[in-house]
Amino acid sequence: MTSELEISRRSLLAGSAATAALAAAPQAEAKPPMTTRPSTLPVVLTVNGKRHELMLDTRTTLLDALREHLNLTGTKKGCDHGQCGACTVIVEGQRINSCLSLAVQHHGDAVTTIEGLGRPEKLHPMQAAFIKHDGYQCGYCTPGQICSAVAVLDEIKRGVPSHVQADLSHQPQATNLEMRERMSGNICRCGAYSNIVDAMAEVAGAKL
């Protein structure tokens, strides 16, 4: 039963990936001849406090470096085009889409992934709040949601303005409206949004 469920979920994912690939299929006849051979470069990343020296194809995204080269598979590949937010990680204190960044651009940078925020035996307060408030169903978008949520509360604290802020000269507050706007780059197809905002509100209340 479990394996059947897994198979159907996998083929569903493969199916949707195929549709996306079809929509984006490059036109074979239009391709210019390939004149550049694959190129590799050394890349040093400090991920969750640990230094890694990698030799990577220049095309490797930060997301693929984390998942395929460092086996940190907590960070998820959703759309791979910066539209879903499943790949969100924190780089040098800022949340970014790791799928839209080349690993070589981050040579020397410090990266925090979901694995670095907390561990099962020692959860980050945001992870604990997501569990308490049922902030997920399938869980696929959750690592990105949690990395984003942690960074959003930091952005509010640092006074980064937002689209819904009425007065730009005021310090923003962690209101429901603010958190919904600031989390709009993280899609949850299960629709756990209201519970995610509840989890964030609890952490914000405890912190601010």
Binding site: I96, N97, A151, P161
Partner: peptide, 23 residues
Amino acid sequence: VRRSYGVLTRAIMAGASGQLRNK
């Protein structure tokens, strides 16, 4: 920018997502 060119802050914050604007 917020104080004297508010239309610019408003326009930027109306675009993309937090993750994209950081990059």
